[in-house]
């Protein structure tokens, strides 16, 4: 924190209904409060629906069954989710491993190397990548990527295909957010390091990126969260066989895909078991947010 950073003090308490201005303020506060409550309410609503939906399966089979069972045959009393949890993690982590570094490099290129025109053009490309519907990525993966992998290592629908498709989808998220983080840094940091005789790559690697660590980590975390929840594109290319991801060419099934695939016909405890899948997915994302709080540091870059 530099000395010049202004300390924002708490605004004075608003006295309600004192003249027209105070009234406007009061209305504003109520609107703010209402939108806050709405957001929390939506979140709580989702959790409650998930909890109610999963209750039958959890009482019938118990939480232990979902962890301990070796297989997923919900109509035959086998509720094992571990393989799907592992597959979800493998696909997402793989995608982040590719898209994270690439996204950071894109952000650095846009911010420090591209000229005005090239930088703007690149940003438009990234925005477009982000805007393409996931089913279109899935279509591309299914018709172009999977046959290529199949020619090499059949059957082609595989963890690897999922990782590649997801990488392309996560890339713009990481790149755009990391670039925004870099833009938040004071210019004096980069100028200052060059003025000290640091080469451009050294200034970026050792000073700029370390200073923006928080923002870059946040960009990666949000990319990972997006990867964890992605359903359609992954479902279309990974083969969806319930199995531990023991090879990049293995066919796997992720948790979101599990829900999407079976919800249409599931009844009774099977249906409820799919709610438990959703609960597990929520828990994974929640855990991610907690981890980020613990060692991701502050989301805001240091002044």
């Amino acid at each position: 924190m530099t000395s010049s950073q202004t300390i924002i003090s708490r605004p004075p308490r608003i006295r309600l209904f004192r003249g027209p201005l105070a009234l406007k303020d009061a209305v504003f506060v109520v609107v703010l409060w209402a939108s806050g409550v709405l957001a929390i309410g939506a979140m709580a609503g989702v959790l409650i629906v998930l909890a109610i939906g999963s209750a039958p399966a959890l009482t019938e089979a118990g939480l232990g069954a979902f962890v301990a069972d070796g297989d997923w045959y919900p109509t035959a009393g086998e509720y094992g989710l571990v393989a799907m949890v592992a597959a979800t993690l493998a696909v997402s982590a793989g995608a982040l491993a590719v898209a994270g570094p690439l996204g950071i490099l894109c952000a650095v290129y846009i911010r420090y190397y591209a000229g005005d025109v090239a930088g703007a053009a690149f940003r438009v490309v990234l925005m477009t990548l982000a805007a393409i519907p996931s089913v279109v990525y899935g279509l591309w993966g299914m018709t172009v990527l999977v046959p290529h992998i199949a020619a090499w290592q059949p059957p082609g629908t595989s963890l690897l295909a999922g990782v590649i498709v997801l990488s392309i989808m996560v890339l713009p998220t990481v790149a755009v957010l990391a670039e925004a983080g870099l833009r938040q840094l004071p210019a004096s940091l980069y100028l200052g390091s060059l003025a000290l005789g640091c080469a451009r790559h050294a200034a970026i690697k050792r000073i700029v990126l370390s200073s923006a660590k928080g923002a870059v980590a946040a960009a990666c975390m949000l990319g990972l969260a997006r990867a964890l929840g992605e359903t359609m594109a992954v479902l279309m290319v990974v083969g969806n066989a319930v199995a531990m991801p023991d090879s990049p060419f293995a066919s796997v099934r992720t948790l979101p895909a599990n829900i999407a695939l079976e919800m249409a016909y599931a009844i009774d405890v099977h249906r409820s078991a799919l709610f438990v899948s959703g609960l597990f997915l929520m828990a994974m994302v929640g855990l991610l947010l907690v981890l980020r709080r613990c060692w991701g540091g502050a989301d805001a870059p240091q002044s």
Binding site: S193, L194, L196, G197, I207
Partner: peptide, 27 residues
């Protein structure tokens, strides 16, 4: 080489947001 021969100090202090030692170490 020029910027190593010619140092510069800015209007607003611009320490790097690291430890004092690392501010020097990088340079």
């Amino acid at each position: 080489r020029l910027r190593k021969r010619v140092g510069m100090v800015f209007q607003k202090p611009n320490p790097f947001p690291f430890s004092i030692r690392r501010n020097f170490d990088i340079v």
